[in-house]
Amino acid sequence: MGEQPSPPLRASVRRASRLMEAAEAHTGGAPAWQLAREAGLEQDAAGHLLRALTEDGYLTRLEDGGYVVGTLLDRLRAGSPGEGVPAGVRSSLAALRDEMSAAAYLTFYEEGEIRVAEIVDGPKAPRVDLWVGFEEAGHATALGKCVLRELDDGARGDYLSRHLLGDLTPRTITHREELVRQLEGLSTPSVMDREEYALGTVCIAVPVYSGDTLGSLGISFRSDRMYRPTQAREALLSSAARVSRGLSFTL
């Protein structure tokens, strides 16, 4: 896995970051073709990203067709006192919670550990009981397995060598070879845990990036709740793109 190219989400965030950097250099605005050239992108790819950045509020399109940095970027950089992540990113988590009626979680892989950065829940979307810390349960949570899946072989091996694959429920994978086989056999960017961390709870997660720092974005819900995996995956991937852009632009 260490030789694989950058995941599509990270590559997209990097392209969007280059466009934002180009736009910031033109306080009076610049047309799409100029931003694409300065960012080193094909015009079609740049056009798609410019539309997405404008819809999300990171850019503003002027009457003459030029683009300037939007006010959302200033709000993201300012953040919100007392919050673990920028206000705009937390708003994306809240929107995901409301759309899916499920608690939303954000984690990062820092200093060799998987750590929860933010949880956004509510009366109709309660969080899972964190009876075992996420740092010790990476093998049993969708959020943790999502991070482990994205790591290269060396980093993943280092993590697994330092963490006991504890038997949290009868469904928990406790054998390293089985866990790695499951992660490498996945064909989509989403990862699930089906009552592996807590009985009665299912989680699904996708990767996010804060610059080059890997993380995961996920939701949890009761195992007896009817849901559509495709809908959940699409909502998570859309939110992950927004969260990754917001995190990257606050660096």
Rank of each mutant, 00 (worst) to 15 (best):
K124L: 10
V69S: 10
G185Q: 11
E196R: 00
V13L: 09
L164V: 03
E195T: 11
K124A: 13
S91P: 08
M226K: 14
R225E: 15
P5S: 03
P31F: 02
P81S: 15
C146H: 01
E42H: 04
S17F: 06
Q34S: 10
G47C: 07
V206A: 05
A39M: 06
G88I: 02
T174P: 08
H26Q: 11
L50M: 04
R162K: 15
R171C: 06
L168H: 07
V208P: 02
R245M: 04
E177P: 01
I119T: 13
T107R: 10
D193E: 10
A205N: 01
R228H: 15
Q231P: 10
P189G: 13
T172F: 01
F108G: 04
L9V: 00
D153L: 11
C146N: 08
H48E: 06
G166P: 12
A232M: 10
S216F: 10
I204N: 13
T230R: 00
T188P: 15
L214K: 14
P8F: 00
A240V: 02
L183Y: 07
V206Y: 07
E150A: 02
E196I: 00
F108D: 09
R51N: 15
R90D: 14
L199P: 08
A87T: 08
V132I: 06
L19K: 05
F249Q: 06
R194F: 10
E234G: 01
P5V: 00
Y159Q: 11
C203G: 14
E3M: 07
S210T: 04
L72S: 12
R171M: 09
A102K: 03
D193I: 03
A16G: 12
F108C: 04
R15H: 09
A16V: 13
G57V: 07
E38L: 00
G215T: 03
P229R: 05
D121N: 14
R14L: 11
V120A: 06
